[in-house]
Amino acid sequence: MEQLPNIQQLENFIIYGKVRNFTTAAKKANITQSAFSFQMKKLEELLGVKLIVRSNRGSDLTETGEKFLHRIQKIMGDLSDCVYEMKQIKEKIVPLNVGALMSLGDVLMNQHLAYFQKHNTDLTINVYNLEAHELFHQLEEGSLDIISTFYMSQFDSAKYGKTFFCNEKMVFYAPHLHLQQKKLDIKTIADYSLVQYAPHYLMNSIIKNYFMVNKATPIIKAWLSTPYAIMNYCQQNETGAVLSERLLNAVGIDTGYYSMVPSFNLKCYLMYKKNNPRYKIMKIFIDYVQNLYANKQ
């Protein structure tokens, strides 16, 4: 029987096809560049065709290499699906890894999971509460199956799927102000000191941009990492913070906050890789969350 390429050679060829650079591809494959180059040459020898053209200026796929990449990506995707489905015959419990945006709080996702798992006993779900850059990184690397976040423009729409599930209403939480009005305009809010998320957090830039667009400059009293720490700080001091109304309600807070003028709403999505072999399982969870919020809008 004619010798066939091994799985590692094919997987590493796909890695090269994505980055078109031996040094970068070798790092992603976690092997030395010389070992990676040897694998690609061995693959070409087995196939009897030139897949990669090399020169002093770099390297790239040949026309044959492009065709092979297209075919082998589909074949490897089908193989992953097949292996995953076979494992499920042996393992009844299917793990699903879900990431929630730290600045929105994990209590919301935990509430959903408790109900969901009660009615889907064949599924187990691991929840990871992370900041945006780490959520995106782990989704890209495959450590997370689904992330709950705001839509980011850097996502490749051809590679990622996104399902809208709710509008996040942001409010001004300031329990020590004791104001009579239910709504505060942004100029009034900017007169009070503000507790903000840490500078490198996604929510920091979103809130900062909201004030900037509306030509207001708040006085920042402190920078904290979690919405729970921010809530606690506001409860202990005469200051305010921009937080999710949904999160405040989830932890039992229904007073002490004010609607913002102009309104501050953010669209929330569940995002996932389209070629994830767990997609059938993921779809059950995605549909559940989407339907849950459809009834609340």
Rank of each mutant, 00 (worst) to 15 (best):
T32H: 02
T32A: 00
T32P: 01
Q33N: 14
Q33Y: 04
S34T: 11
A35N: 14
A35L: 11
A35Y: 10
A35T: 14
A35V: 10
F36D: 05
F36W: 10
F36Q: 10
F36R: 07
F36H: 09
S37W: 09
S37F: 10
F38P: 07
F38Y: 15
F38D: 10
Q39H: 06
Q39S: 09
Q39D: 08
Q39C: 09
Q39L: 13
M40Y: 00
M40N: 10
M40V: 12
M40S: 06
M40L: 15
K41C: 07
K41E: 10
K41L: 11
K41D: 11
K41Y: 11
K41Q: 13
K42T: 14
K42A: 14
L43A: 01
L43M: 05
L43P: 02
L43E: 00
L43K: 02
L43D: 05
E44W: 13
E44Y: 08
E44V: 13
E44R: 07
E44L: 12
E45D: 15
E45I: 12
E45V: 11
E45K: 09
L46A: 06
L46E: 06
L46V: 14
L47I: 12
L47W: 12
L47P: 01
L47R: 04
G48P: 09
G48L: 14
G48D: 13
G48T: 11
G48N: 11
V49T: 09
V49A: 03
V49D: 05
V49P: 02
K50I: 12
K50M: 10
K50E: 04
K50N: 15
K50C: 06
L51K: 01
L51M: 02
L51H: 01
L51C: 00
I52Q: 03
I52F: 05
I52H: 08
V53I: 14
V53T: 15
V53P: 06
V53A: 14
R54I: 15
R54V: 15
R54D: 10
R54S: 13
R54M: 12
S55E: 04
S55N: 05
N56H: 03
N56E: 08
N56L: 08
N56G: 06
N56P: 04
R57N: 00
R57D: 01
R57W: 01
R57Q: 01
R57F: 01
R57I: 04
G58M: 00
G58C: 00
G58V: 02
G58L: 03
G58K: 06
S59C: 14
S59K: 12
S59E: 15
S59A: 15
D60P: 00
D60C: 04
D60I: 08
D60E: 04
D60L: 02
D60S: 03
L61A: 03
T62C: 02
T62N: 01
T62A: 02
E63M: 13
E63C: 03
E63K: 06
E63W: 11
T64S: 00
T64R: 05
T64G: 00
T64A: 04
T64M: 08
T64I: 15
G65C: 03
G65W: 11
G65K: 07
G65I: 13
E66W: 09
E66S: 04
E66T: 01
E66H: 05
E66Y: 09
K67W: 01
K67A: 11
K67H: 04
F68S: 03
